[in-house]
Amino acid sequence: MDDAEYRWLQDILYEEDIDVVRKEIERMDNSILLHIFAGNYNWNNGFDIPNIIINNDNCDLGTALLLFYSADGYRMLEDEQGFISSNSTKWKEFLIDLYDKITNNKFNLQNIAFNPPLTKIQILKLKKKRSDIPSILLEVLNGNEVKIPKL
């Protein structure tokens, strides 16, 4: 990523006009820049922008997995009943949609590596508790390692 791309991503990340951010993310055609943006996203700003990211044709599977775990997808896997009974509707809708896209192979690009932020113990407990969790959510995704600089 060059300096111009870095500044551009910074500008988008800190832009206050949600419509400007939405348009920039929708037209973003570089999966690495989309990944870096996703890695810097402030979740206090809600789920609108992450939804746009996962619906961008250039969203890589590695980025989708990053967003899944950044949105606390582990809670969805670990405590299905607690997840279902949560009052956070937008969070649930986002994770259900993202889970569906990931497990049904809806991401055409699969070039960015991702290592789930789980310990071996957490993985073993999840597999023991729920044998139906797809391995794509628990295993390392091979690909290009993308360093996510702080914007």
Rank of each mutant, 00 (worst) to 15 (best):
D2Y: 09
D3H: 13
A4I: 12
E5I: 06
Y6A: 12
Y6G: 03
Y6F: 13
W8A: 14
W8Y: 15
Q10G: 10
Q10N: 05
D11M: 14
I12W: 05
I12K: 00
L13K: 07
L13N: 05
L13P: 05
Y14A: 12
Y14R: 14
E15M: 07
E15H: 10
E15Y: 00
E16V: 10
I18D: 13
D19R: 12
V20C: 00
V20N: 03
R22E: 00
K23T: 02
I25Y: 06
E26S: 10
D29W: 10
D29T: 12
N30P: 06
N30S: 03
S31Q: 15
L33E: 06
G39R: 14
N40E: 04
N42H: 10
N44P: 08
N45R: 14
G46A: 12
G46H: 14
D48L: 06
D48M: 10
D48Y: 00
N51R: 01
N51Y: 06
N51M: 12
N51E: 07
I52R: 07
I52P: 12
I53H: 00
I54P: 11
I54Y: 11
N55Y: 01
N56I: 03
D57K: 08
N58H: 15
N58V: 01
C59A: 14
C59T: 15
C59N: 09
D60G: 07
L61C: 08
L61Y: 04
L61F: 07
T63R: 10
T63E: 03
A64Y: 00
A64T: 03
L67S: 04
L67H: 02
F68A: 06
Y69A: 11
Y69S: 01
Y69I: 02
A71W: 03
A71V: 00
Y74L: 03
R75T: 01
M76H: 06
Q81C: 12
G82E: 11
F83H: 14
I84W: 09
I84F: 05
S85Q: 11
N87E: 10
T89A: 14
W91Q: 08
W91F: 10
K92C: 15
F94V: 12
L95A: 13
L98Y: 05
Y99N: 07
Y99V: 03
I102M: 11
I102Q: 06
I102K: 00
I102W: 01
I102C: 03
T103D: 03
T103G: 01
K106A: 03
Q110T: 08
N111R: 05
I112Y: 02
A113R: 04
F114A: 05
P117S: 08
L118Q: 08
L118A: 13
L118I: 04
T119P: 13
T119D: 06
K120M: 15
I121P: 01
Q122G: 08
L124S: 15
L126A: 10
L126G: 05
K127T: 07
K127F: 09
K128G: 09
K129I: 08
S131N: 04
D132W: 02
S135A: 05
S135E: 07
S135P: 00
L141Y: 04
G143F: 02
N144F: 09
E145Y: 15
E145Q: 15
V146P: 08
K147C: 07
I148Q: 04
I148R: 09
P149M: 02
K150A: 12
K150G: 00
